[in-house]
Write a protein that binds this DNA or RNA. Structure first.
Length: 445
RNA sequence: CGGGGCGUAGCGCAGUCUGGUAGCGCAUCUGCUUUGGGAGCAGAGGGCCGGAGGUUCGAAUCCUCUCGCCCCGACCA
């Protein structure tokens, strides 16, 4: 993409309404525009990152064997009367009447609807296990939306629903989600720690939240520092191997890590003092096993191997997709702007032409631009007639991890400059070498 | 929902107390100069001061109502 033809409305000054850094940076980098309290338009740059995050979530869900579908945003109230949640959910649920005066709602979640789909089409244990998920916009009419997309009213969420014949099978589904989530967050450059959580209004017997450590997090967290060093890396995972999946979960939940809701001071005190940490975290996902909470009242039953009709065991598992953008920025920025992890960056590299109009600079930029695209990478080429300082400041703000700087001075010696946004380190090399280096960096991700 | 605050040009703000018909910086446009970290000079355009009603000769300014947004708390993915 050539910046001269893109739509990137960056702001030089901080918008007055944004308090926390991710909100400020998303507004300043031209990623979002607020349309009402807690409701945002996603401008091209923000939309691009949102799609990258969404794609990673899709890929990891399907890698774990989960099946995508798409349910509507608007739901009939009657479905929610069956589970009893129409009255329980309270003012957070946005209730709407259509022109026929039918009661509808903008879905805050989809347990009822997925249970309805399941009971309509599945009757036998032979069709289990089954995990269906979708990535869809939700609405929760928060009393006080804040922190930009981290606590909006409208938000994009991946929610997955597991159907199993018994508790043991359902726990495997739970574990499978935990591992797939760990992998999802790692690909986004995040360290998200699973913490035992309280169940909340969705209900559940067993539940973990995934928290990204950040000083601006909404929850207070208590953890053993060693938990922050755990990584899945690129190990092979067989998602059908119950024992192997359970072992990975054990590895990641063995160490103490809890939110203030479930914190146990006695257990915490048993951790060596130097490793005992108290901090704050942003919740970016949650997994629940809730058994027959919805299947029993809604009649989602199957016939088991013994010929008995039993309510199916369910779980629901969510990732806050739009919220993740805020969390990633909270975890990865500096005073000049965002620093995108390679896995989610909107463009793979910046090309900064320091002197548009200079034949050599223009030609070198075009060459680099073409070569990167041939390698399947998306560069953002700043071909504007602007000063160097402004170009650098813009690229720093929008946070592309790699920048190739092209100017007559370097080109006199046949060199361009490759700069890491994260470290600030620069190296001079030929245009071809810079392209090869960038391609190599992304080859793994 | 309790408490606090703010709506004036695209953005950030002053002006409101003490009424007299709107200003600054950035951005935008034009010209010249400049050109490796958000340039300089000169000029130009852009606002029924969130909305409605009221008081007044006269309202951004005072009064009433209303809408929107932000912050702290409670609540929440």
């Amino acid at each position: 993409m050539r910046l001269s033809r893109y739509f990137l409305p960056v702001l030089k000054e901080n918008p007055a309404e944004a308090q926390i850094v991710s909100h400020r940076l998303m507004l300043r980098a031209g990623m979002i525009k607020q349309q009402a309290a807690g409701i945002y338009s996603w401008l091209p740059l923000g939309y691009k990152v949102l799609r990258r995050v969404e794609t990673i979530v899709h890929e990891e869900q399907q890698r774990a064997g989960h099946i995508p579908l798409l349910m509507p945003t608007l739901q009939p109230a009657d479905l929610w009367r069956e589970s009893g949640r129409y009255d329980d959910y309270g003012q957070e649920m946005l209730r709407i009447r259509d022109r026929q005066d039918r009661e509808m709602l903008y879905g805050p979640t989809n347990e009822e609807m997925i249970t309805d789909i399941f009971r309509s089409h599945v009757a036998s244990y032979r069709d289990l296990p089954l995990t269906l998920y979708h990535i869809q916009w939700k609405f929760r009419d928060e009393l006080r939306p804040r922190f930009g997309v981290m606590r909006g009213r409208e938000f994009l969420m991946k929610d997955g629903y597991t159907f199993d014949v018994d508790r043991e099978a359902a726990m495997h589904a739970y574990n499978r989600h935990m591992v797939s989530y760990l992998r999802t967050y790692e690909r986004m450059g995040l360290t998200a720690i699973p913490m035992r959580a309280a169940s909340g209004p969705i209900g559940g017997d067993d539940t973990h939240e995934f928290l990204v450590l950040a000083p601006t997090g909404e929850s207070e967290v208590f953890y053993d520092e060693a938990v922050t060093t755990l990584r899945l890396g690129n190990r092979q995972i067989d998602y059908d191997d119950r024992a192997a999946v359970a072992e990975i979960c054990a590895e990641f939940t063995r160490l103490y890590a809890r939110t203030d809701e479930t914190h146990d001071p006695a257990l915490f005190a048993a951790i060596p003092e130097t490793q005992r940490k108290v901090g704050r975290g942003i919740e970016v996902g949650q997994i629940f096993y809730f058994g027959t909470k919805y299947s029993a009242p809604m009649g989602a039953t199957i016939t088991n191997a013994a010929g008995e009709r039993v309510a199916v065991h369910m779980g629901s598992h969510g990732i806050g997709v739009s919220r993740l953008l805020g969390a990633i920025i909270e975890a990865s920025h500096d005073d000049r702007g965002i620093i995108w992890p390679e896995g989610v960056t909107p463009f793979h590299a910046a090309i900064v032409n320091l002197k548009p109009g200079d034949a050599a600079a223009d030609a070198a930029c075009e060459t680099i631009y073409g070569l990167l695209r041939e390698r399947g990478l998306e560069p953002l080429y700043d071909d504007r007639d602007a000063r160097a300082g402004e170009k650098f400041a813009t690229m720093d703000l929008i946070g592309l991890p790699w920048r190739i700087t092209v100017g007559p001075r370097g080109l006199a010696g046949g060199k361009v400059e490759l700069t890491s946004r994260r470290t600030g380190d620069s190296e001079e090399m030929s245009p071809e070498a810079a392209v090869a280096r960038v391609a190599e960096i992304y080859a793994g991700s």
